[in-house]
Structures are given as C-alpha cells and as structure tokens.
C-alpha cells in the first residue's frame, strides 16, 4: 500500500458565532491523501472545504477526530504543508521574484534554489521577464501563477490548493489546468485540490471527494481511471460523461440547506 501523506479520521469542526450560536461546519470527515496523488475536493460554496485545509495545516484545531500528517498526529508534529489560499495574497510591496522567494527567506534551512534553477522555474511558470514587476502590474492569471510558484517554493512534499483558478475566465482556466498537470507531473508532489468545477476535478484528479450538506460531509468518493498524461480530448469520452453525471447527481442529492 502507498504511503499515507495526510489522513483525517472522524473529523468534526464547529465554529462559535459572535451571537453565541454554534455553527456545525464539518461532521465525521474521513479522507486520505496518498503519496504523489492528486485528489480533488468538490462541493458547493460554504460546505467547509476551506475549513478542511485550515485543519490540515494546523491553523485551526478540530473539535473531534484526529488528523495525521506523514503518519504523525497533527497536534504533535510540526510537519510543514504548503498551502495556497483562495486569494493570491501576493505582498504588494514585494516584486514577483521576492514574493516567490518568501518561503525560502522564512525557512533558512530549506534547500537553497540557485538563480539558474529559479530562472527555469520562472520560465516554466510563464513568469519570465516579470521578476522585478510588482504584483499590481500583473494580470489575474499571472498573479495566480506567481502565487502557485510561491507555493511550490515551500519545502514540503504536500500541497493544498484552494480554488487556485476560481477567479479566472474559461480559456485562461483550461490553459492553467493543463499547465498545472505538467508542473505537477514534473515535481511529484501530493496534492489536495479544492474546486467547485466538476470538469476541472475530473480532468485533474486521481480521486475525487464529493462534499455536501450542512454540516459538511463526504457524500461520495470517486476514483478517476484515466491514463496520464491527459489531454482535453478525454472530455468527450463516455467514461468522462458518466463521471460527470455521477458527481452532479451527488451534488444535487446533498444540497446546502440554510
């Protein structure tokens, strides 16, 4: 069996609102991310996807259940997980290069990246020539790629990506998906990928967790058996359409009730 990078067992999370009410956000979540796997988490807005990532990184603590990172309990280990939030969160006062280098600056013990290697990465991420530009001069797609490159700079074999392409238009988005697959295959990281786009989830993933309801629960787990490397052609195959129908079905079965 492959190594378990991240594992959640019976995770429950409640948020305490200002008016004293308790908001049950996650209930009895079980999920796992194996080594070098690309797994998507799909679900409607507000079902607790971002909360899951905050628990995995240790930014928030669960109210029940246990999280394991590389086999150790989250609350007992300092294991670093690279995390890209929904917003690009580039520092406006830093150039793109300095933004990307931030993780290396913070962790002095991380493997240094040579200027030549950095140059290659900028090429690979389509940011060449913009090293000295400030984020506010870049387009949305480029900012997103810069944030993604910064995420790759974090010295960790696990990556959590929270709707990295959510704010992009259709064409840019599908380009970025194709390109993310390339980059991921070259770097061999274990990835949890949040999206609420069904096509995106199927195209990218080895496995898909479907979430729904309130409190948020896992309502389905779907392995995607397409060969890699993948091209957008697979989107017209019957298998693809049946995956799509299955996910859509699950999502409509468990809507969020206010």
């Amino acid at each position: 069996m492959m190594m378990e990078r991240i594992k959640l067992t019976q995770i429950t999370k409640n948020y305490h609102m200002e008016n004293g009410r308790v908001l049950e956000t996650l209930k009895e979540i079980n999920m796992v991310l194996y080594d070098k796997e690309f797994v998507s988490i799909i679900g409607p807005s507000g079902c607790g996807k971002t909360t899951l990532f905050r628990l995995m990184t240790g930014l928030d603590k669960p109210d029940g259940g246990e999280i394991f990172v590389n086999g150790q309990k989250r609350r007992e280990t300092n294991e670093k997980i690279s995390y890209m939030q929904q917003k690009d969160l580039l520092m406006p006062w830093r150039t793109i290069l300095d933004n990307v280098r931030l993780p290396l600056e913070i962790d002095k013990e991380a493997n240094p990246v040579s200027p030549e290697k950095m140059n290659q990465l900028f090429e690979l991420f389509g940011l060449k020539g913009f090293e000295k530009a400030y984020p506010n001069t870049l387009s949305g797609g480029m900012r997103q790629r810069a944030a993604l490159l910064r995420t790759f700079m974090v010295d960790s074999s696990m990556m959590l990506l929270d709707e990295p392409f959510g704010a992009l238009d259709g064409i840019t988005r599908s380009q970025m998906q194709q390109w993310l697959l390339d980059v991921w295959q070259k770097n061999q990281k274990s990835v949890f990928f949040i999206t609420h786009d069904i096509d995106e989830a199927i195209f990218l993933s080895d496995r898909i967790y479907v979430m729904g309801g309130r409190p948020g629960m896992i309502v389905g787990e779907i392995p995607v058996d397409f060969q890699r490397p993948r091209t957008p052609d697979l989107m017209v195959t019957p298998e693809y359409l049946s995956y799509k129908a299955e996910i859509r079905n699950l999502l409509t079965l468990f809507p969020i009730t206010k």
Partner: peptide
C-alpha cells in the same frame, strides 16, 4: 490570511 499563510511557512 496573509499572516496565516506565513504561519504555514513556519514564520
């Protein structure tokens, strides 16, 4: 969220 991001980098 930016501060949170830095925390995940162990700042």
């Amino acid at each position: 969220e930016l501060i949170d991001l830095m925390k995940t980098m162990h700042a």
